[in-house]
C-alpha cells in the first residue's frame, strides 16, 4: 500500500468513525477512532498502560505486512542506504522498529513466526543504562528516546535484550512531521505514539495484520480487547526470566 493510499484510508477511517468498529468486508474489521479524536492537551498518566498480545500461531510464514506498515507509518522507508555502503551490511543495520523472527524447535522441527519489537518493559534496561536520561518510560508505559537529549552512545542498544533499537548513522533527507529523525540518535518502536496522542487507538502493525495476530490496547482496563484476550488465552513474556514485565506478550510461542 502506498503512503498516499494509507493516508487516504486513515482519512476514510476518520470520516466513518463511529463508537463501534467498522466492518469493511465480511470478517475484516477496522478498529475505529473514538468519536472525538483530537490532539491530546493533558499529560499522559499511569491510568493507562499500553500493551499488546501477539498470537504467534496466526503469524503467517513469509508475511511481513506489519514490517512494511511500520516502515511507512514511521518514515523508515525514507531512510536511504548511504552511498558506497555494502548492501548486506545495510540490511543488517538499517533502522527497523519491528522485525520478523522465525523460531525453529530443533527436536520437532516446528517453525514459529513472530514479530519482535520494543517490548515496552516496565523495568527497561535501556532506561537504566542511559547516561543522559534520553531513554525514558512515559507514564502510559511507552518506552521512547528523547532525541533532543540522546548523544548516540548506543549503551541502550547493548542493554536491550530484544535487539529492539536502531541507530541512525547518517543524515536523513526526508522525514515525516510526526517522526523526526536525524544522524546520531537511537530510536525504537513507540507504539505509534503520534496516533495515540492524536486520539487514535490502533497501531500501524495491528491495522496491517490481515491475520489478526496483534491485539493492542490498555492493559490496565480489564474490559479492553487486549486484557480480555490475555485473561482468556495462555501467554508468555519473551525472556520472562529477566523480570522486566514487558508490555508486549505472546501466545502460542
Amino acid at each position: 500500500m502506498s503512503r498516499t493510499e494509507q493516508q487516504g484510508r486513515r482519512v476514510f477511517l476518520k470520516k466513518t468513525a463511529t463508537a463501534a468498529a467498522v466492518a469493511i468486508a465480511p470478517g475484516v474489521m477496522l478498529h475505529a477512532l473514538p468519536a472525538a479524536a483530537a490532539p491530546r492537551v493533558e499529560a499522559v498518566s499511569g491510568k493507562i498502560r499500553w500493551g499488546m498480545l501477539i498470537d504467534a500461531s496466526k503469524c503467517a510464514d513469509g508475511c511481513s505486512d506489519c514490517v512494511t506498515a511500520c516502515d511507512k507509518e514511521n518514515g523508515l522507508d525514507l531512510v536511504d542506504m548511504p552511498a558506497g555502503a555494502e548492501e548486506a551490511l545495510w540490511e543488517r543495520q538499517r533502522p527497523r522498529w519491528i522485525r520478523q523472527v522465525k523460531l525453529k524447535d530443533n527436536l520437532s522441527g516446528k517453525i514459529t513466526n513472530l514479530p519482535m519489537m520494543c517490548q515496552h518493559c516496565e523495568k527497561p534496561p535501556c532506561v537504566d543504562v542511559c547516561p543522559t536520561g534520553a531513554s525514558f518510560r512515559r507514564a502510559d508505559g511507552i518506552v521512547m528516546v528523547d532525541r533532543h537529549i540522546c548523544i548516540g552512545c548506543r549503551y541502550c542498544m547493548m542493554a536491550c535484550p530484544y535487539k529492539a533499537r536502531s541507530f541512525i548513522h547518517a543524515e536523513v533527507a526526508e522525514k515525516l512531521t510526526h517522526t523526526p529523525r536525524g544522524k546520531g540518535c537511537v530510536e525504537s518502536c513507540n507504539l505509534c505514539v503520534h496516533r495515540l496522542d492524536n486520539g487514535e487507538s490502533t497501531t500501524a502493525c495491528q491495522d496491517a495484520c490481515k491475520h489478526q495476530a496483534i491485539v493492542f490496547g490498555d492493559l490496565n482496563d480489564p474490559e479492553s480487547a487486549v486484557s480480555r484476550a490475555l485473561k482468556k488465552y495462555p501467554s508468555v513474556q519473551i525472556r520472562a526470566d529477566l523480570k522486566l514485565n514487558t508490555g508486549i506478550r505472546y501466545s502460542n510461542v
Binding site: R138, D140, H148, D197, N198
Partner: peptide, 10 residues
Amino acid sequence: DLTVHQGIRG
C-alpha cells in the same frame, strides 16, 4: 518537552 514526555500535541 511537553510533547515528547507528556504526549501533549494540541
